[in-house]
């Protein structure tokens, strides 16, 4: 495992959002390797494949066809193999219900997709540089939703 760069994955059915996502990381001065998947099924197929390179941080869109972000979250949390993956929910909605449910299911952080590129870069930079060890152990609902 090469520890020089952070392995990032995103599952999102929206092409524009994937573009913003990769563009943002391109512009950020952080050593990352970004992989994107078009929906939950593609993502889980990859993660479950034998030679999969597990991401350090996984960004999950909630509203996807075939397999939703919530279903992916449950599958990942049910499998001890994926224990080390930090999961960031990356959704348009920030409804109380979604936040509550994903928190209960064990997601690590919740990001509401921002409405400007500048804010997006800021948010992603913050998430990727979080000390996950510290963040996870807190299990605090107050800082679950990322505030920008």
């Amino acid at each position: 495992m090469n520890q020089d760069y952070i392995n990032i994955a995103l599952a999102d059915d929206d092409e524009d959002d994937r573009l913003f996502f990769t563009d943002a990381f391109d512009e950020l001065k952080i050593q990352t390797r970004v992989t994107t998947y078009n929906d939950g099924v593609y993502l889980m197929d990859y993660l479950n494949s034998e030679d999969a390179l597990l991401p350090n941080v996984l960004f999950l869109d909630l509203n996807m066809p075939r397999k939703t972000g919530m279903e992916c979250l449950k599958e990942i949390k049910a499998n001890p193999k994926f224990n080390d993956i930090a999961i960031a929910i990356y959704s348009t909605s920030a409804s109380e219900e979604d936040i509550e449910n994903t928190f209960i299911q064990g997601a690590n952080i919740y990001i509401k997709k921002p409405d400007s590129f500048k804010k997006l870069k800021k948010a992603l930079a913050e998430v990727v540089t979080i000390n996950w060890q510290y963040h996870t152990s807190g299990l605090n609902k107050d800082n679950f939703l990322l505030r920008l």
Partner: peptide, 20 residues
């Protein structure tokens, strides 16, 4: 209102990129 947010957000994000 939820689904309307998505295209709007993209319009705003693209606008911010364009502006930049």
């Amino acid at each position: 209102s939820h689904d309307l947010q998505e295209p709007l957000r993209k319009i705003q994000t693209f606008l911010s990129r364009l502006e930049e």
